[in-house]
Design a protein around this nucleic acid. Sequence first.
RNA 1: GAGCCUGUAGCGCAGUCUGGAUAGCGCGACUGCCUCCUAUGGACCGUAUUGGUCUUGAAGCAAGCAGUAGGUCGAGGGUUCGAAUCCCUUCAGGCUCGCCA
Length: 589
Amino acid sequence: MPRNDKDKNRKTGSNGCSCYKYDLFRDAVSVVLSKELKDDFDGSLIEVPPDHTFGDYAYPCFSLAKVFKKSPEQISEEIAVRLEKSLVGNKVIARAQNRGPYLNFFVEPSYLSKTIISAAIKKSRPELQKPGKKPEQKQIIEFSSPNTNKPLHLGHLRNICLGESVSRLSESIGNNVIRTCLVNDRGTHICKSMLMYKKEGKGMEPDKKPDHFVGDFYVKYNELEKKDKGIEPEAQEMLRLWEAGDRETLTLWKKMKRWAVEGFNETYDELGIRFDKFYYESEIYKKGKDIVKTGLRKGVFKEEKGAIVADLSKEKLPNKVLVRSDGTSIYMTQDIYLAKLKFKDYGADSSVYVVGSEQNLHFQQLFAILKLLGFSYAERCYHLSYGMVYLPSGKMKSREGVVVDADDIISQMKDIALKEIRKRYRIRKAEAERRAAKIGLSALKFYLLMTDPGKDMTFNPEESISFEGETGPYVQYTYARASSILRKYNKKIDKNIDYTTYGDDELVLIKKMGAYHNTLVDAACSYKPSIVCRYLLDLCQIFNEYYHKTPVLKAEEAQMKARLLIVMGVRNILASGLKKLGIDVLPVM
RNA sequence: GAGCCUGUAGCGCAGUCUGGAUAGCGCGACUGCCUCCUAUGGACCGUAUUGGUCUUGAAGCAAGCAGUAGGUCGAGGGUUCGAAUCCCUUCAGGCUCGCCA
């Protein structure tokens, strides 16, 4: 489904996050204001001013103008004057001040610092946490969905990075995630590489990464097909034999499928991905017909020219054939079955499909059909649609070999990282390679996650491997800087500090740290890791500026202690945030 | 022909759902800075070996920081005290449209 922001029909897929959001300073502002304004108070209007010097929170008074029949400026001024008295003794809100039509509030700095920092220095969960636990939701997240006739490519990488990050984000708001992978292991495209292996493979064993070995035959097939149109019927015939259960064909199929899957698993390992469950198309492709037939009997579907068709006009969608006139099932048929199977297997509360935007209509139709069938979980299915990945040279076409291979990209990123490291540090080879692996992967993952999932993106290799600016390595480097300070201090850090020593620069940083919790919630409920990327970049920038102009270890005792806690908090948040993106942090850099 | 999505600086993006205070960020360009980063010198400590700590600080360069330049928020209209944001029209690009997956 085109579950984008502007999709007004969005009903499913929410991670139910609003209740996880938590801002106790804003709550305090609400309390103060609601006392003052009574029924005229609208908490949803409270906002954060564009410039921190204006205040920490703001209440725009435009809407009050009609009520009080005065100008917004006048109203905000009057309320500010009245609040002066009532705020005496308030431990959270230090003062209120009007600025034009806005009423701005300042949180008591030491209270703010203490609250945020004491959360941030907890290594396990550096975000603020609302007391009381949410009931755990079980969520199935399906991603990767490879075809067993060729290796993974760049598009899969975006899919996988998204799937893993969304899974981790979901877990971070307390859900129990089951990672599933649908393996597309049947169909003519699979037979094509099999056919070519049969013709030219001569019983060879893979002499390279096995999925690449398989993929080579697929490429060869397509080269041949260009010259010799007569080969396609051969592939069709092979599919017929496969479906008929021909022993020789099945043996070949099993062998090549194993190679492909072995290869995928290597890549998954490399990326740090592990699935809880693999579903195989070959095992389910015939199923679902029963569901459709029952639907036909109950009058949910209709028959047209011998085919079973779902009438989706009520949902304003094109109709969809569910069973062909020759009685065979199609992709949609098995998807209906798989949707049901997943809920049955895990008793899940919701089910997410990470699939490219070219299948938007397919999923709209699928969910509409589930709804027609009266399956209650139809409302709890969500298509996480992501945009195409283009190359500067245009669209990738696997059949024509214009592909960026996933494994190639990964190793290329590592090589470049290694060169960069060698340029900067003289360390042992093994250590350099270990770092290169992590840094190269982080660059890749961050680059793929940084763009809003719904949008198409261009994979510019030059830019993606850059280590400067808004990149994964930049965030990691910032983490390393923070770590380096703590390492140099090399003593147990005293957590009992004086929270009044913080100045303005520090408060800006601390407030950003305080935003981590709600950022995670936002990202998790909108399925957008890009929100976390943006947040981390902002935090890094503020921290680096702070690092640049504020000495920590060379400050006098009380300040040093207070600053060390900031460094520690930032470090924890960076590590935590990167982890949500599926990125490993270097222990020491 | 229809549906969905996208359009913000030379390039790549955030902000749009939930309208507000000067439209943010990165790359590239130009100008600077430089500590807890890099490297050199010095002192001390240590190991089978790789090292570690302190200090100085010419210099360099940054996976770092700052400043400068760069904008009809695709175009046009409307709603509103107020529009990048909401509504309508239109242009451009992408994806898709019952027996493919």
